[in-house]
Design a protein around this nucleic acid. Structure first.
Length: 289
DNA sequence: AAGTAGTACAACCGCTCGTGC
DNA sequence: CGCACGAGCGGTTGTACTACT
């Protein structure tokens, strides 16, 4: 059927018309109530018994991506963006696997983020989004800038807030994340030590300012090139960065320090305003054709 | 204010995988 | 082994919203 929004008739299976398109409040309520009473699973039967004129597939998707109580709304924090970049460099388009490391975020959301923001910039740069060159660009520029931004948030919050938050941290929310932190011991930045991360709630605006990038910044010909030119003043331990293809799990993975992960409520509304501005970032000089 | 372009994201589709018979 | 079915995954599309002219 060419008309994607057409009503599907399948008389052999259903005596009613299957609904498609946006969910209504009534449908959402039906689905929520049914799952509250009977739990998830058996989606086709669920759709039938809940009185929903939807496919089981559709119900499952609606629940997992939108209605589930622990779904986190709002912009991705710098920490989450960094984690996505890191995990994607490791696992590729394994969105569900990546989503498992970001509590409250769905694979769909992460996929959308990657396609609409990251890949779009790759296209602008005429860099193949899955190429080694693009991977290097991410590693050499995006990740350090995100780390720097998180560092700024950290130091800012330390100076303005001494109260420790009782809000669950990313680490405590998801033990899997804390297990992904071999990187912490390698980061030599003064504020990248293992100090507990304070609640950054005092930070209300922390959009990365990429105007700090050198005006004549060249597209990196190598990771070393990029780090050397950009991060000499940033106190990063270059040895700590695994600048290789990052495709293998294990030692040397580029991961966040414990201090970055713990203590801060990265999910707070304040942090939701910390949209990492990709457009500003990509202002550096495009590679020669 | 209106039209247009760009963006974000919800939803759908096709495919694969696992399981039970 | 092969089939049917449910579940899940990644890719793609449609559209509402926003920014820009």
């Amino acid at each position: 059927m060419s008309d994607a929004m057409a009503i599907v008739r399948n008389a052999s299976e259903e005596e009613f018309e299957l609904r498609r398109g946006p969910w209504t409040l009534e449908e959402d309520t039906l689905l929520i109530n049914y799952i509250a009473c009977h739990g998830e699973g058996k989606w086709n039967l669920l759709a039938k018994f809940a009185g929903l004129k939807r496919t089981g597939k559709s119900c499952r998707l609606r629940w997992l991506n939108y209605l589930k109580p622990d779904i986190k709304r709002g912009n991705l924090t710098p920490h989450e963006q960094l984690l996505i970049l890191e995990l994607h460099s490791k696992w590729g388009n394994r969105w569900s696997k990546i989503a498992q490391q970001l509590p409250g975020r769905t694979d769909n959301e992460i996929k959308n983020y990657w396609r609409t923001r990251v890949q779009k910039q790759a296209r602008k740069l005429k860099v193949e989004s899955n190429s080694q060159r693009f991977l290097e660009t991410i590693q050499c520029f995006l990740m350090p800038r995100l780390i720097e931004q998180m560092e700024q948030i950290s130091s800012s919050s330390k100076s303005t807030s001494q109260s420790s938050s009782s809000t669950p941290t990313m680490e405590t929310q998801n033990p899997a994340i804390s297990s992904l932190l071999p990187y912490q011991a390698s980061m030599n930045s003064d504020s990248m030590t293992n100090q507990p991360y304070e609640n950054p709630s005092s930070v209300t605006s922390s959009t990365i300012c990429f105007s700090e990038l050198p005006e004549n910044l060249q597209y990196p010909t190598s990771p070393t090139h990029a780090f050397g030119s950009l991060l000499n003043d940033c106190h990063y331990d270059m040895e700590a960065f695994n600048l290789g293809p990052m495709s293998e799990a294990g030692s040397g993975d580029f991961l966040l320090s414990d201090g970055q992960m713990a203590g801060g409520d990265w999910t707070s509304d304040d942090m939701a305003g910390t949209v990492w501005n990709m457009e500003e970032f990509w202002q550096f000089k495009k590679p020669e054709e």
